[in-house]
Design a protein around this nucleic acid. Structure first.
Lengths: 122, 122
DNA sequence: CTGCATCATTTCGGAACCGAATTATACTGA
DNA sequence: TCAGTATAATTCGGTTCCGAAATGATGCAG
């Protein structure tokens, strides 16, 4: 069952939730970092630097730097792959899970406040 | 009619659309800038620096800098308020409208791809 | 017309991010 | 063992953003 949003609804939700995101969470996360974080927490592991870089269409240093920053915030954790010690496996943390959950709460709350245009199904 | 999203749906949509945002649009917009842009295009005018700053809970230089950047990208336009020449009115542009529309397309497309969890209405 | 209030902008030092190129480490196959 | 390949991390110069404070421009009240 797909989610069929109308343009005004989609943008309205984005508007409200992004606004609340800035208000509650602040400027401490770029869009790239947010995309990386969500992917780590929502897509099935394992996650590697190389895989994330390919996923987003960015270079590997972008991922490394984002992991530095988010690691320092406690949102993710790096672990060497013992099978192939060249690889780094990115692990989730409790703090990161809470962060993602809070973001979900914001989206849900703003979605609930929205008055959706309805009826135009035809 | 509110939009009642479940956590996995809300975050799934955010995940997919943010990922696509990074892939298509790139890093040239911060979350704050995005929030400002969406507010300008979705909330009724007029928009002032002061109003936007209060809305987002940030200082005015943040807005000024964001308008510099987005103005340079052609996404917004500044006009002096002739009634009170201390004020700056932020106007929309064709290019900005196209940008917002494109973002809406991304969200709608990703929403349509989602398989929503359903039935849990109770 | 003079002082005060209210706009937006600019400046400052510090931090983060950007892309591109380079480095360091580890695996692989001859 | 010894290239050759693949991984992540680091360095480089330049740009942008950050918050806080200072500046400039305009309006307002006496």
């Amino acid at each position: 069952m797909p989610l069929d949003l109308r343009p005004s609804d989609a943008l309205g939700l984005w508007h409200a939730a992004t606004l609340e995101h800035v208000r509650v969470i602040g400027p401490d996360l770029t869009i790239r970092q947010l995309a990386i974080l969500l992917h780590i927490y929502l897509a099935p592991p394992p996650h590697t630097v190389r895989g994330l870089a390919a996923m987003l269409g960015v270079t590997k240093p972008v991922i490394t730097r984002a992991l530095d920053t988010m690691g320092h915030m406690g949102l993710v954790r790096r672990v060497r792959d013992e099978r192939d010690r060249r690889n780094v496996i990115i692990k989730r943390t409790v703090e990161g899970a809470l962060f993602v959950e809070k973001l979900g709460d914001i989206i849900i709350a703003e979605g609930r406040k929205l008055s959706l245009s309805e009826g135009s199904g035809a």
